[in-house]
Design a protein around this nucleic acid. Structure first.
Lengths: 243, 243
DNA sequence: CTCTCTCTAGGTACAGCGTACGTAGAAGCG
DNA sequence: CGCTTCTACGTACGCTGTACCTAGAGAGAG
């Protein structure tokens, strides 16, 4: 039925919906008003992830938490990926950027930012994995980006370099948080690991590993270790281009 | 049947199998000899992941590639996690550490190592995600660790600090590789992103972002950008503790 | 107000996943 | 030889993301 005006099978204009959820309008104004919002959906998902881990966040689970049918959720979130985007941005909205207003001292400002970010990652153990996995656009993430750029403005670095610096900074904090988690989770695992490593060190196959074991002091407390590494990262950011 | 000597239901000694796959012997010597080895299994999994991505690596898929039944695979790999461990170590086995023998110049050595690592991540796009997600023990990973410790020996840092440095280094390279992938994948996505960002920048909500857009030069080629950031990371590692 | 069109809500269904469990048979040890 | 212990593998369960379809609600056009 090529040109006859059959009323039903007309597909006028869904030519290409944007892949990025932030480019889809939350509401078009037509039809019944939605029962939920991106904010409430994200909040529900975050609550589940906080309580039971990221794997517990399934479309069914989130929909149920909202009191909705599973498939209804797909009206708001076309793919599960997008649900994760919403969670990511919800978490980014928890920064207290007002408390972090730039002071003109990039090192101090970045230290504060790093601490707040680590606290955020500790509060939401699923967060680091998401931050590392996906770019993280979205209004709140952009606010964070803007803040980072503001804080690093005094360095004299150009825009591109400061974006690269942010990626490094971000990546470092999240990786640290993630490492902290795997270390904390499972005393048995930890014990096995130590046993295995010492066995490996004593095998003679890894001389430098053995030597490192011998020369390293007692394990530092997590916060101290973080501060030390964070300072190194900040040094890298503030240092002149290279040598 | 509590105390009668029924022959079948005796559970003598599976008290606690180690969680770490490297602590389980590959072969106990009893029973028929296995038709596969960890090496061949890892190779099959790697081949699938290279060709179709990490998501395509399922127990069924790998088993089929080996010509085995799905559940047979569980004799070698008690959980899927462990299959990923095997893949990780197989990839770590591809380092040409002989070509990277320590020269006494940590900066140069780390540069070489970083380049080889990036090449490895480009060859196996699934690798960065795995490295970031899990600690990465295993014989080949330990060889890498040992090498890193050897290369950084001249810095005078103690064992613990050099391990922290390795985590930073590793994390940086893998994150960069991962970023590169998401950037490369999907011109449409990329286009949407640029559009969204410029719109955001022009909204006035993100003044520093807008300014950064304005002041950043033309996008650098990926290798240059990598080298620049890598050098910063190396600086951070080599720098005296902090200021 | 009425018509129409678009939206939301939700059920059903499918392919695929990890893996618990049970059975059959082969290979090494006593 | 026989006992034990391993390997191989089929079946089955609960879970996942999501394609597709049917109703019906509500806003805008006439």
């Amino acid at each position: 039925m090529p040109s006859s005006k059959t009323p039903s099978s007309a597909k006028p204009a869904p030519p290409e919906a944007p892949e990025l959820i932030w480019l889809r309008p939350e509401r078009t104004g037509r039809g019944p008003r939605p029962a939920h919002s991106r904010t409430t959906i994200a909040a529900a998902a975050v609550e589940i992830a906080d309580a039971e881990g990221l794997d517990a966040v399934s479309m069914r689970r989130v929909a149920a938490a909202l009191g909705a049918g599973t498939m209804s959720l797909y009206n708001y979130v076309p793919k599960k990926e997008h649900l994760l985007d919403l969670m990511l941005d919800a978490a980014a909205g928890e920064y207290d950027l007002a408390a972090l207003a730039p002071t003109g001292d990039p090192r101090a400002d970045l230290r504060h930012l790093g601490h707040q970010q680590l606290a955020l990652c500790r509060r939401h153990p699923w967060l680091p994995a998401l931050v590392i996995a996906r770019p993280g656009i979205g209004p709140n993430a952009l606010r964070y980006t803007d803040h980072f750029l503001a804080v690093t403005a005094p360095t004299g670095l150009d825009g591109g370099a400061r974006m690269e610096a942010m990626a490094m900074f971000n990546g470092f904090v999240c990786q640290y948080a993630q490492y902290e988690q795997t270390a904390a989770a499972g005393a048995k695992w930890q014990a096995e690991l130590v046993g295995y490593l010492t066995k490996a060190a004593m095998s003679g196959e890894y001389p430098h590993l053995a030597q490192a074991f011998a020369t390293s002091g007692p394990p530092a407390d997590p916060d101290t270790a973080f501060d030390r590494s964070l300072d190194r990262v900040i040094t890298a950011i503030l240092a002149p281009p290279a040598g």
